[in-house]
Amino acid sequence: MSSTTTAQETKWWNGGRSPFNVEYGKLMMWYFLMSDAFTFGAFLISYGTIRFSQNFWPDPNVVFNAFPGAGHANLPLAFVSVMTFILIMSSVTMVLAVHEGHRGNRVGVMKWMAWTILGGIAFLLCQAWEWHHLITGQHAVLTDKNTIELIGQTMGGNPWGKLVDPAVAQQALAVSSQETLAHLAHEYPTKEAAARSLSELEKMPKGQLMGMIDMAHAHIREKGPIAFGGYFFGITGFHGFHVFSGVIINVVMLIMTNNGVFDRKGHYLMIEKAGLYWHFVDLVWVFVFLCFYLV
C-alpha cells in the first residue's frame, strides 16, 4: 500500500503533527470504546464466573426457541439469528455511509445513514419482542413446595431448570391449583381434551383435568439458576441501551448532514466517529451472541 511508504518516510515524532495521523476526536472515540469494551467485558466475565460456579445452567437452545407468529413451534436460535443479521447489515450500511463521507457525497451519506437508523430501530423492536416473550411466557415448573406453577423468565425466577421425572410431576398435579391444571390441559392436551377451549377447561373440576394432561409432553422442569435473568436482562439491556443511544447519535448525524454542516466543515469526520460507535455496538453483540445464545 502506498500509505505504508509514506508513513515510513514521515518523521512522526518531530512535532507539528499528530504522531498517530488521527484527528483528536476520533482518537478519543477509540479510547472511549476501549474503556467501554472493558465495561462489557467485566459484565460478561462476571456472568461467566457465576455460570462456571454452577452445576447446572439452562441450555440456550431450550430458552431461546420462539419466533414471532410461530406459536409454540420449537425453533431454537432462529429469532436471534434474524437479530444478528439485522445488526451485521446495519454495520455494512454504516460503513458505506462513512465511505460516501470520504467522497464528500452528501446524498449518499444520508441514504446509508437512514438505512442504518432503520436497522437499529428494527433490532430494538426485535429485542423488545424477545424480552416481552420471555417475561410473559408461562412455563410449568415444580416448586419447592412440590406444586406445579406457571412462571415466566424474570429477574426473580427462571423456569429452565432440570427436567422433572414425569412420574414425580404427575404426583404434584394433585396439589397444584385448578387454574394451573386448566392451562396445562390446554397447552398439552390428551386426545379427549384436545377439542376443549381454555374457558371450558377452567370450569372443570381438578380430578377431571388431571386425566386430561399429556404429562409425557409437558416437560415440567425445576426452577433454574436465578442469576440467569439478572445477567441476561442486565447485559442485553445494557447493549440495547447502546443501540438506542447509537440510533439517537445517528439521527443527529443525519439531521446535521441534511443541514450541510459537514459540507461547510469540509469533511465528514463526525460520520466516521459515529460509525466507530455503531460498529462497536455490533462488535459487542458478537460477544453477547456468543455468551448467551451459542455456548
Binding site: T10, S18, N21, E23, Y24, H102, R103, G104, H267
Partner: peptide
C-alpha cells in the same frame, strides 16, 4: 466530487476511497 480537506492533525489519507473499498 471535490476531494475532502482533512483536519490539521491528519498528514496523509489512509486509502483512496473508490470502488475497491466498496
Amino acid at each position: 466530487m471535490d476531494q475532502q480537506h482533512a483536519p490539521s492533525e491528519v498528514t496523509f489519507h489512509h486509502h483512496v476511497p473508490g470502488e475497491e473499498n466498496v
